[in-house]
Design a protein around this nucleic acid. Structure first.
Lengths: 213, 213
DNA sequence: AAAAAAATGTTGCATTTGCAACAAAAAAGT
DNA sequence: ACTTTTTTGTTGCAAATGCAACATTTTTTT
């Protein structure tokens, strides 16, 4: 828990102090366990400390729709997602998963004797929210592209910028990527093939090299 | 400016005090004027006080791509969007537009004598960010739908939930809606026609009624 | 080490969608 | 009140995409 970005810059003893002060709670979940459901009224903010999870819903046929994926330092909670209709949306652990949660309101309306820890905590929370906003903006930017090719290239260029190299390993499986880009997996595979044929990329599985002309 | 959600719960005199303390700056722009460009290093946070604006870029052909639209209480800034490649992205006023801006860092690392105003300001800022996160989540949820029909229905159901009625007026033009859903306008029009033919909706222009079976 | 499960790669085909081009209506500007 | 611009509505056609079904490879589990 001390490695969470929420506590970056904290001394271990101060983490404990703050945890007590904010009434932070912890939860450990195994794969496929439900961490929380979007229906409760109290406004808790959840932070993933370790492991992975996803926000998903199952329709009447049992088909799963994944809305969002979470990893270390991801945040989720009632104020970031509101379900539409009667479907139940829940966050499931996709691997052994540790989360912490606290009342959003308590964290913001910190007690009168605002200590350095509180300030830093808010600062960190702010940073995490900004990063989420940025990640979502990027996702929207990509989803807004009209063709599979444009989506793919845009995504790959982002990975290139992040990794700082023309050659990189995709951070997720190709099937997950198809989900993220919201396109059919086989159609994506076909486009990858075309990009290879046209010499725009060289790829084998998750290993991809962008060729600049 | 006193009507901005950032200052909700504030007395007028305290707004002035805080504005001075944070070094808040103001800017008035006419339609089509550039409010800011995503290239400067200083991390300013912008809040729209009145009017509308959009984040857009022009490619070599002069085609405009709109990434995001802003209205009262929308926030934007370097930490929420990072341009990819050499293209220049800017925020343009789409109507006469008032914005305020301040250094992100100054707002978070507020001075030692944390007054009630500071706290409330941060509180409001968090709320605005949460709302933006929620709006983006919804947008992603819709963009992730695979067919035009699913996108449309999902969007309309959101409007229905917000308005609380099966009958409503779209909050934007049909062309803008096609942009928002990232689909071809004429294809959307065709789908609207089909939905009418099948008795799923009754619509004429922006006036739409959802028929529940 | 073997078996089971998940991910990758491929293809034909039907369907959906985007594109282009236009007419009509509505809204905005002068 | 008139003109210009934007929005809405429509259609044929070509192209892109999703779907289904399968073989192959890789990864995970037992």
């Amino acid at each position: 828990m001390y490695k969470s970005a929420l506590f970056s810059g904290f001394e271990v003893s101060n983490v404990n102090k703050l945890v007590r002060c904010l009434g932070v709670k912890f939860k450990n979940c195994n794969t496929n366990e439900i961490i929380m459901s979007y229906k409760e009224s109290p406004e808790y903010l959840y932070v993933v400390l370790s492991g992975t999870a996803e926000l998903a819903t199952y329709d009447y046929d049992g088909n799963k729709t994944v809305l969002e994926r979470f990893m270390q330092d991801s945040i989720f909670g009632d104020m970031f997602f509101k379900p539409l209709g009667a479907d139940e949306f829940s966050v499931f652990a996709t691997s052994s998963c540790e989360v912490m949660y606290f009342r959003y309101y308590d964290a913001i309306n910190i007690c009168e004797n605002v200590c350095k820890e509180h300030k830093r905590f808010l600062d960190n929370l702010f940073m995490i929210m900004s990063k989420k906003l940025l990640a979502q903006s990027r996702h929207i930017e990509i989803l807004t592209k009209r063709t599979i090719r444009e989506k793919l290239i845009n995504y790959l260029e982002h990975i290139e910028a992040e990794s700082g190299s023309f050659s990189f390993l995709l951070p997720m499986s190709l099937s997950s990527l198809a989900d993220y880009l919201s396109i059919d997996r086989s159609a994506m595979q076909r486009e990858i093939k075309h990009l290879n044929d046209e010499g725009i990329i060289i790829s084998k599985g998750k290993k991809i090299t962008l060729i600049k002309k």
